[in-house]
Design a protein around this nucleic acid. Sequence first.
DNA 1: AAACAAGGGGGTTTTACATCA
DNA 2: TCTGATGTAAAACCCCCTTGT
Length: 257
Amino acid sequence: MERQGLDLGLSLGLGLTTAATWPAAGFCLNSGMAEQEVIRRDDVVAAAAAEDERFACSPGSPVSSGSGKRGSGSGSGSGDEVDDAGCDVGGGARKKLRLSKDQAAVLEECFKTHHTLTPKQKVALAKSLNLRPRQVEVWFQNRRARTKLKQTEVDCEHLKRWCDQLADDNRRLHKELAELRALKATPTPPAAAPPLTTLTMCLSCKRVANAGVPSPAAAMFPGHPQFLCGFRDHAGAASSSYGGASSGLAKAVRAAR
DNA sequence: AAACAAGGGGGTTTTACATCA
DNA sequence: TCTGATGTAAAACCCCCTTGT
């Protein structure tokens, strides 16, 4: 599963108990679990349960209810079930908390390394930050959501610019077309004919574009597979210029005219 | 009003267990 | 009796949206 693949591994027995020392110790950055350690999920879950229980009602520690539906109705729930049932938070209203700057910083640092956590990582991270595993899990979920939202905004901005550029191109081409039609209406001697428009063809997909106009999509979405055909950006595809004197393809095109 | 932690629903994957040929 | 295939329920996790502070 993907989750297994993301298991970067953590060294749990390092005594990394403080938020201050943990990142510096390479908790996130170090993929120390080189050995093929078989992580028993139950063990990790049990540890998480223990952690959750430890913090569930501890004074000064954040209080919240457990995961949404997980364990609901089931007698053998995970640690997430350990919620504020035994803690008086005031008529069942959940108590919102704010993670400390240090905690957020550590989480952020870890998020830079990998956007998901293995159960083991989650437990260790929670322990080091004096949080419940569930809190760490929620933080990563929300963080991923924020990242995605940001990326969506960026993509939207790119698309807007691309759209504007396409509109400009369209206007320019319409204008050019009108000019060509006007020229055709008033024929001139061959010697005075306007130079051929330089075009570029993608040899892979046979699409033709004006060579002077870079592909906006390719420029704006480098690496996006759907925009690989950016003509000049088309990987491995040589471009040929129509109208150029040296191009064999151009000669063939001229011959065909 | 914005930011954010957390709740909850729905979907997917993994795992343990039971059943059957 | 052993074994591999198959079905199933529970658990865990994720995404998404919403709620409450």
